[in-house]
């Protein structure tokens, strides 16, 4: 029982960075912009969050720095695709490549240094309850924040007028522009929100999940987050479910390796990526359904004509 609770606790920590990054990207894609730079923004968040946490000694300031850097880094992408109308796929890729390089350079002096760690929630009485106590009341604060974020984004997109406008822009930027809505303005904000989320996801990796900095520590999570958005057919609640399934796969393979299951470790290490492909195949099979769910302007450059 103790082991099961411990495993379930780690599933939440593995799912949380995926969830936060995917929720951010969901908002970006709902506005009609495809940002393939998630991996790069996560790793920039991870390195800046770690350094800020290490220097100040406060994991909270570290997370704050991760959010700010993630948002600023995404502005680079925003300026390119929104103001200069560059190809979104290529620009997103270059953001990832730049992020992986820049983070390695900035973080070179911090590899292997132990950093501060965000401690888990402890409510006397409640957290001490058997089994459910630690699962429900004993996670780290960001886990709760990520679930609140999912709530908030779901409410914003489907229950507010601004959310409706954002979705309209994603489905038809031409019509939105004709109505006098600032397509580029909305998209800048959406891109920055996505950057802030990816940054937070990165900060979570280097301050909570494994409180240290290692190069390439995002390990493809940005790409899995992108796949999660497709898997969830651009709906926040399904992102939550998908993130926890992937968190379970991620943790499952780690524990399987530790338990000495007679399968090469590399097969297990490849499992989350193979699972991503499998899930994408299952979800994309129905072409009509996919087309119905995908924001219609996704990935198309927009230049307001005057």
């Amino acid at each position: 029982m103790e082991i099961l609770v411990a495993i379930l606790l780690t599933v939440a920590t593995a799912a949380t960075p995926l969830l936060i990054a995917a929720i951010g990207e969901l908002v970006v894609e709902r506005s009609g912009v495809l940002n393939l730079g998630v991996e790069g923004m996560i790793i920039m968040g991870a390195v800046s969050g770690f350094i800020a946490g290490y220097v100040t000694g406060s994991p909270w300031l570290g997370l704050l720095a991760a959010i700010v850097v993630g948002a600023l880094f995404s502005l680079l992408f925003g300026f390119m695709v929104l103001t200069l109308a560059t190809n979104q796929v290529a620009t997103g890729l270059s953001l990832t490549l730049l992020g992986l390089g820049l983070s390695g350079m900035i973080g070179a002096k911090f590899v292997g240094v132990p950093g501060p760690k965000l401690s888990n929630l402890y409510i006397p009485g409640l957290t001490d309850l058997p089994v459910v106590g630690r699962l429900v009341f004993g996670q780290d604060p960001v886990v709760y924040l990520s679930i609140a974020l999912t709530f908030g984004v779901g409410w914003f997109l489907f229950r507010t007028r601004t959310g409706l406008t954002l979705r309209a822009i994603g489905d038809s930027h031409g019509s939105a522009h004709a109505l006098g809505i600032s397509v580029v303005g909305y998209r800048y904000l959406a891109v920055m929100f996505g950057g802030a989320c990816s940054g937070l996801a990165g900060g979570y990796l280097s301050l909570v999940y494994t409180p240290q900095w290692t190069e390439n520590m995002s390990a493809g999570r940005g790409w899995i987050a992108l796949a999660l958005v497709v898997f969830a057919s651009w709906r926040p609640w399904r992102v939550l479910g998908g993130a926890y399934i992937f968190g379970a796969v991620w943790i499952g393979q780690l524990h399987a390796q530790a338990f000495g299951i007679p399968v090469p470790g590399q097969v297990l290490a490849a499992a989350p990526y193979a699972a991503t492909i499998l899930v994408l195949v299952l979800i994309s099979r129905n072409k009509r359904l996919t087309m119905m769910n995908t924001p219609a302007s996704l990935g198309q450059p927009f230049v307001p004509d005057r």
Binding site: T86, A90, T91, S94, L98, G101
Partner: peptide, 16 residues
């Protein structure tokens, strides 16, 4: 990693 930074910047500027 300086090499990677240069490569990333180059792609950005080309696209721009």
């Amino acid at each position: 990693k300086v090499a990677r930074v240069f490569q990333g910047m180059l792609l950005f500027f080309v696209l721009g």
